[in-house]
């Protein structure tokens, strides 16, 4: 079994009286895609927010390798090796593709906040930005303003930005949402390559994509984990069928 990069134990998030996430433990391994599925309101996005630091945990612990990141702010987790995409595309819409990715590389370069000398001088940062752009297949779009691209391309850009931060753990919150068939196929291919040397946690509604990508599968409902393990095993779990009963997006893809 490959190394566990992320280990979250007994996570709980309470919003007033509402338990959005309760008693969730999850391991994400290197070289694996760990998919989290569940009906709407199951707490999947909240879980990602807890792991990235966008939301603070009420209780529980999060370890990145051996490092306790439970109470770290999002920017410090990013520096520790956690990269994420958002459900709603979160990029610098007015900047070019290259500038978007360059900023990501800059944040993890030698002198991210140098006050003198133009940005063009930092060859290493520019090279890493270009490599990330090439990896997601946006090379020909390098000088395009981000907001003028299609939704699918913007999502690819967001992945390139995450890649340029050289993360150990990548959190993807519904990367296929709102995509057409061809775009989705392309994104699945990109995500498949992401797990190489990294750990990927994927929240997704598209079951074709989930079963095509997942090495490990966790099902959540009402803020709790109801099943976890090998995708085939989970698919046939009675509680899982129960949770999805009456929902349109059935688990039997």
């Amino acid at each position: 079994m490959s190394e566990i990069l992320l280990k979250a134990t007994a996570l709980e998030k309470r919003y007033g009286g509402l338990k959005a996430v309760s008693g969730v433990s999850i391991d994400v391994h290197r070289d694996e895609v760990h998919a989290v599925i569940g009906p709407n309101g199951a707490g999947k996005s909240t879980l990602i927010n807890l792991l990235s630091g966008d939301a603070a945990v009420t209780s529980g612990a999060i370890l990145l390798r051996d490092r306790d990141i439970t109470s770290m702010a999002p920017q410090r987790r990013a520096m520790a090796g956690v990269g994420r995409s958002y459900q709603k595309t979160t990029i610098f819409a007015d900047a070019t593709v290259f500038e978007n990715v360059r900023l990501a590389a800059q944040a993890h370069g030698g002198q991210p906040l140098r006050m003198f000398g133009g940005v063009a001088k930092d060859g290493n940062v520019n090279a890493r930005a270009q490599a990330a752009i090439d990896e997601v297949g946006l090379t020909h779009r390098s000088q395009t303003i981000a907001k003028s691209m299609s939704h699918g391309e913007q999502r690819q850009l967001e992945i390139a930005m995450v890649l340029a931060t050289e993360p150990k753990l990548i959190l993807l919150d519904e990367p296929l949402a709102g995509m057409g068939h061809a775009e989705a196929a392309r994104m699945i291919e990109i995500i498949h390559r992401l797990k190489d040397g990294r750990a990927v946690l994927l929240v997704e509604h598209d079951m074709d994509a989930v079963f095509a990508l997942a090495d490990r599968l966790t099902v959540m409902a009402d803020g709790k984990v109801i099943a976890s393990g090998d995708p085939e095993h989970v698919r046939n779990h009675p509680d899982v069928r129960q949770a999805y009963l009456g929902h349109e997006d059935g688990v039997a893809a």
Binding site: S52, D54, A73, P74, Q75, R76, A78, M79, G83, R84, Y86, T90, I91, F92, A93, D94, A95, E99, R102, L103, A104, Q106, A107, H108, P112, L113, V119, M161, T165
Partner: peptide
């Protein structure tokens, strides 16, 4: 550039590590 990035999208600037 980091300052302008934070203006453009604070959430993204933070999650990149700025």
């Amino acid at each position: 550039h980091a300052l302008a990035a934070a203006k453009g999208n604070e959430r993204r600037a933070l999650s990149l590590g700025f």
